[in-house]
Design a binder for these strands. Sequence first.
DNA 1: ACCTGAACACCGTTCAAGT
DNA 2: ACCTGAACACCGTTCAAGT
Lengths: 205, 205
Amino acid sequence: MDKPDKKSYHHGDLRNTLIRAGIEFISESGASGIDLRKVARRAGVSHAAPYRHFADKKALIAAICEEGFNLLSAEIEQAILMTDRSPFEQLRSMGHAYVQFAVHNPWLVREMFSGLTIEREAYPALYQVSKKLFQLIENIVAAGQRTGQMKEGSSEELTCVIWSMMHGAAILIIENQMKPITMQMGGIEHISRVCIDSLLLGLRG
Amino acid sequence: MDKPDKKSYHHGDLRNTLIRAGIEFISESGASGIDLRKVARRAGVSHAAPYRHFADKKALIAAICEEGFNLLSAEIEQAILMTDRSPFEQLRSMGHAYVQFAVHNPWLVREMFSGLTIEREAYPALYQVSKKLFQLIENIVAAGQRTGQMKEGSSEELTCVIWSMMHGAAILIIENQMKPITMQMGGIEHISRVCIDSLLLGLRG
DNA sequence: ACCTGAACACCGTTCAAGT
DNA sequence: ACCTGAACACCGTTCAAGT
C-alpha cells in the first residue's frame, strides 16, 4: 500500500518510526486496538521486527500512549502560555485545549485511558508523562490559591477535581453522549466551557 | 473447562446466556476486548452459534454494554431511592454509586465508553439505555431548579456538567491516575465526594 | 429453526537463519 | 546488532451440512 521514503531503518530509528506509524494508525483506524503487523508494514519492516524494540504488543501500545500524553501536554502548555496570568482564565484555556485534543484524536485518547495506565509498575514511563500533565494543572491551582482566588485545601485534591471535569467532558463528548448539544455549531466549545465554569462557580441557585 | 448446567439452549435463551457469559468474561478478563470464541465456549455452544443471534462481534459487545448501562442505571436508581429529597444529597449518592460501580466493574465501564456509543445509528438500543441514565440525573436537576436550590438555565446542560464530573472521576480513579489518593483507606470515597461537592459549591476562594 | 465442523484469512509471538 | 521467513496457536467469519 504505502511506500514510505524507504529510509534505512538499520540506523536505530525503527523504534520511533513504529511509534509514529502507530499514532497515525490509531488516528485513522476508526477502531481501538493497534494491529501490530499493519504497523510494521507501514513502517516498512517485517512483522517480526518490532520485537527487537518492544517486548510485546502492549509495550508498543504503552509507547504510543506515552507519546499521546506528550502531545496532549504540549498542547496544554501552549494554551496556558497564550493566556494571561488569571488562574480561572488559564483553567478555561486548558479545558478548551483538552477537549479539542480529544475531539481531534478520539481513538488515541480512548486508548490512553483504556486500561494500560493501570499497570503502573509495568509501564513507569507512561505513568511519568501522565504525572507531568497532572502537574501542569496543579501549578495553576497552587498559583490561584496563593492569590486567594481559589479555595484553600489540598492542591492535589483540587487538581484531581479539575482533571475529572475536563476528562469527563472530553470523553462524553467524543462518545457522542452529549450529541443533542454537540451537534450544534459551536456546541462543543460551548458545553466544555459551561463544564469548567460550572465547576469554578458552583451549581447553587 | 467449564461444564455449565447443560441446559438445552435450543429454547431461545442462548442470546441472554451469551450476554451473561460476556459480562462475566469481561469482568474477569483483566483486558478489554471480548473473545467471541471463549464466550461461546463458556455458554456451551460452538463458536459459530453466536452468529444466529448477533450479526458480528461488535453486536455482541453492544448488547453487553447495553446490559452494563442497565446495571449501572439500576444501581443509581436505588441510590436515589435510599436518599432523602434534597437534590444535593441525591447527587452525592448518585456520584458515589457511579464511582462504586466503576470500581467494581472497571473493564465493563471501560468497554461501555470505548467507542461503540459513537455509532448511534448502528446501535440504537445502546443509545436508549445511556439516555435513560441521563434522564435519571436530569430529573434531580429539574427538581433542584424548581425549589431554587440549583441555579437556573438549561437542565440538559447542567446534567451534562454533572455527568462529566462523575464520569471523569470514575475513569481517572479506575485508571489509577489518582493513585496517591485512592490507595489510602477510604480514599476513593473521599475523592469522589470532594469532586461532587466541589462542583456543587464551586472552587472560588 | 437452530446448531456443528471444517475451512479461510488474519493476528501475536517465537525462533532459526541470514547480513 | 538488526532484520527476515517460516511456523504455531488462536481468533473472527462464513457456509455447507446435520437434527
